[in-house]
C-alpha cells in the first residue's frame, strides 16, 4: 500500500473532527494539544497514512497538505 504523510496548518484548524471521520484507515486522532484559538488538534498518531487525501478534501479550513510516496518507475 502506498505510504504518505500529512502536514497540518494548525493555527487554521477549528477542531471540527471531520478529517477523523473521513479517514479510511482510522489513523487520525484528536489530541489534547491546542492551538491559539483553543481548538484541540488532530494528529496522525499511528503513522498509517496512505496519502489518499480524504481528510484534506473534507477539511472546511484547508488545513491539511498531503504527500504520497512516488511510485517506483
Amino acid at each position: 500500500m502506498a505510504k504518505g504523510y500529512i502536514e497540518f496548518d494548525y493555527e487554521f484548524c477549528k477542531g471540527c473532527e471531520l478529517c477523523i471521520q473521513a479517514c479510511p484507515v482510522n489513523t487520525l486522532v484528536l489530541t489534547t494539544k491546542m492551538n491559539k484559538k483553543g481548538y484541540r488538534l488532530v494528529e496522525d498518531a499511528e503513522g498509517k497514512c496512505t496519502g489518499c487525501a480524504s481528510c484534506a478534501l473534507v477539511c472546511p479550513d484547508a488545513v491539511i497538505t498531503v504527500y504520497r510516496q512516488k511510485k517506483a518507475s
Binding site: G4, Y5, D9, E11, F12, K14, G15, C16, E17, L18, Y39, G51, A53, A56, L57, V58, C59, P60, D61, A62, I64, T65, V66, Y67, R68, Q69, K70
Partner: peptide, 30 residues
Amino acid sequence: MKEGYELIYERPKSLIKVHNHYCPGCTHGV
C-alpha cells in the same frame, strides 16, 4: 517535503490565507 514523496493535495492558491469566520465544520469552508 520528504525525499521520494510527491505533493497530492494543498490549499488552493485562490483561497486567501486568512482566518475565516465560519463555525467549525461549516460547509461554506469546503
